[in-house]
Structures are given as C-alpha cells and as structure tokens.
Design a binder for these strands. Sequence first.
DNA 1: AAAATATTTTAGGAAAGCCTAAAAATAGCA
DNA 2: TGCTATTTTTAGGCTTTCCTAAAATATTTT
Lengths: 218, 218
Amino acid sequence: MLTHSEENYLKAIFHLSLETDEDISTNAIALKINSQPSSVTEMLKKMSDKSMISYQKYKGVSLTEVGQKTALKIVRKHRLWEVFLFDKLNFSWDEVHEIAEQLEHIHSDKLTQELDRFLDYPQHDPHGDPIPNRAGFIQYSEKILLATLQVGETARFVGVKDSSAVFLQYLDKRNIALGDLLTISFIEAFDQSMHVLINDSNHILSKQTINNIYVLKV
Amino acid sequence: MLTHSEENYLKAIFHLSLETDEDISTNAIALKINSQPSSVTEMLKKMSDKSMISYQKYKGVSLTEVGQKTALKIVRKHRLWEVFLFDKLNFSWDEVHEIAEQLEHIHSDKLTQELDRFLDYPQHDPHGDPIPNRAGFIQYSEKILLATLQVGETARFVGVKDSSAVFLQYLDKRNIALGDLLTISFIEAFDQSMHVLINDSNHILSKQTINNIYVLKV
DNA sequence: AAAATATTTTAGGAAAGCCTAAAAATAGCA
DNA sequence: TGCTATTTTTAGGCTTTCCTAAAATATTTT
C-alpha cells in the first residue's frame, strides 16, 4: 500500500510522462509538486526500491508497468470523483480538482467500482479528460488545439489544456462550455487572435486562450 | 487545520465521553485507538496547546467547546458518508464504517453541505446513529436496550450498540434489519435469552445480542 | 498509613517526509 | 577539449507520530 505522498509522486511522474517520451528529471518533478530536488531524489530511491519506477542516478525516471497501472488507478479515482462533484453535488468545473486531490487517495476498489456504476460509467471528467477504465485502459481522443483551425472550420469544444481555476472561470463568464460548437470566422494576422462564433455570439479569443482549448473537428 | 491523527484523537475522546461523565483517561484513549499510553500523553499535550481539550497531568481530559464542535463535524461527515455508501453505492451496513473512516477526513465544508442535501438531509446513519446537523446539534433519541423489555411488549429496532462487522452480519443472516418491529414472546429464566417475533418469524436471541440492540417502544 | 499495584509521564529513539547547504556529476559552450 | 553553468545527489537537520523502557505519580490493598 502506497502512502499519500508516494501516490502524489506517481501521479506527477505520470502526467509529466504524457508530455514527453524522455525520462523525467528530478527538477521537473520538484517543480510539479512544489518541493525541493533533494526531497525528490530521496523519494525516487524509495519508489525505485518498491519497483514503481525505473531510476538511474542522474538519468531521470520512468514508470514501471506496475507504476503506470497504479498511477492510472489514481487518475481514474480523481476523475470519477470530479464527475461526482460536478454532476451530483453542484460543484463548478473550477472547484472539483482541489477536492478530488483529497478524494483520490481513498483506498477501496469496491468504492471506485460502485462510484463508476453510480455515475453511469462516464468517459470524461468535467474538463474533458478521459477516465481510465477498471483495467487501466485510457481512450485518448484525436483532439487538437483550437489554435490549429483555419477560417471557416467548425469544431466541438472537448477539453482544456490548462485547467486552472482562473481559466475555467474565464470560460464560464463567457458562457463557453464543453460540448459547444465553435466556428472560426476570422483570424487577426498581427496577434493571431481568433474571431469565433459560439452559441450564436461572436467571441474574440486571444492566442493564449486558443492554445488552451481542445476541439474535435466536425 | 487539524491533522488526520489529531482528528482521530478528537473522535476517540468524543465517543468515550458519551459513555461517562468523568474525564477520559490516557489508557482509555490508548485502548480505543490501539496505541501506547505514552503516545497518547504526547498528543494530549499538543491538543491542549491547541485548546481542543482540557488536560491536567494525571487527571484525564475532556473536550473544550471548540473540541466538541470539531469532533461533531467529523462525526457528521463520517455518518453522512456512511449513508452515501449504503444508500447510493450498494454497500452493506457492515462495510460502510471502514471506508467512512477515510472519507471523514476530507476537508471541505461545501462538500459536506452538498452531500447532506444530495442525501436529502438524513437523520440517521445505516446503524441508526443520529447525524449532527450543520450547527453541530445532535438529536439523541430515547432508545433503550432490547434486554430491558418485558414479555408482551413490542418495539421498533432503531440501532445497535456494538456495530462490529460480525454482529451486523449475524443480524443480516437472520433477516433482522433497522426499522423492524419486535415482540417479546418469552424470556428464558436461566440464561436470559429472549424469544422474539420479528417479521412473522420466531427468533431466539442471546443475552449478548439483546444487550447490543437498541429499540424504541411503540 | 505503608506497601504493592496500576496508571501516567518522561526520556530517548525510529521512520517518513520535508528542508538547506555543500559536493558530485552532467551538460553546454568557447 | 577544457571550463563554466546547471542539475542532481549527499549530508545533516527538523517535525510529526509512533514506539519501548524507566521514572514519577496515583490508587488500592493490607
């Protein structure tokens, strides 16, 4: 049984691994979990002894098969709890993450399974991220950044890259929600901002914004 | 913000205080939480510094007003989660306690409130114990032990004293559930075992059993 | 009331998880 | 390639929470 802290390390390494094919550096992990590199080194030794990661001094780490499975279980729990909070308890999509960070550490396979059933086997969390199934299989979709679309194209808003509370609140304020259809009407040449038709209103979205929004072409 | 461990001490002292009007001894706490008296002494000092308990060396402890309120919040969370597991996630009443022990430590007032609403403001947990309201008020009922009834009396099964898994499973096996009506038909003089009519079947309940079952006379 | 017993506290130590500062290894550049 | 800058690890320390063993205090018994 892993400690709370070990689970957080595992999750950090898992998320960092999605961004790159290389081994994950000590510094990157320290940055991710807001701690010091020396603390990370110490923990990596411990997790390597437990066969959760492959670790060679100075060479960075990667998850072992067991580590990967374990990380996926935690991600599964995190995202299922997010759905519960959003669908059943009236939480907004910018509030769910923080509480799911606590709930993801509850140990009970039956709880996870029953929660999944109770929520009717959801495929995505409130930010559009896929929920691994019981076996740890995760269905990644072909989603692309809104920024890559051309004028005239239409796509469905299916996810956010950065799900920080401020960004999510910004979208809420503009009534832009997961599932909405977006049509590009114009792209400003000088700052790459996009004019987008959403729910019959015109929005001008900054370069930063359109690089944070994932869509599926329709 | 209290630690996981401090919350467990608080809860232990709270439950022990329900059984007696005297101050709670170091040994009693150690026994309750399965630890050593010396560990308890150490923690009591810390919690006294935080004004959660009144503590005098060698004299035992009692909860302060703040400590009492805090303990009630934890009990509230514990019992609400038990209802959730039982009502929504198909857990049996002997399984809910263990997982609620983990869930009770999740920190979020909004979560507790929304859970309460979602469950439709339940008054009792699956073992019949009362759930404190948001303000920390707890409605104790006049429940008495089944053992105190006389032949011919009828009462409703409203709670258990010892909610250990084995005892709860024993009741399940005999189809005896919270809310059932019980009528005493005979009491054996030599071992105080009771012949009880429940759901049209006759049960012979041992002295231990009838001292673990709470009822309300009807 | 003194002696024996039981309870509680103190003293000292261990593991987990964090830290800072210094040393070692690696990477980047002239 | 050799030197500098960066990254990573080691060394040593701190806090929390637990432990055992011994000392201090309280309670019970005779």
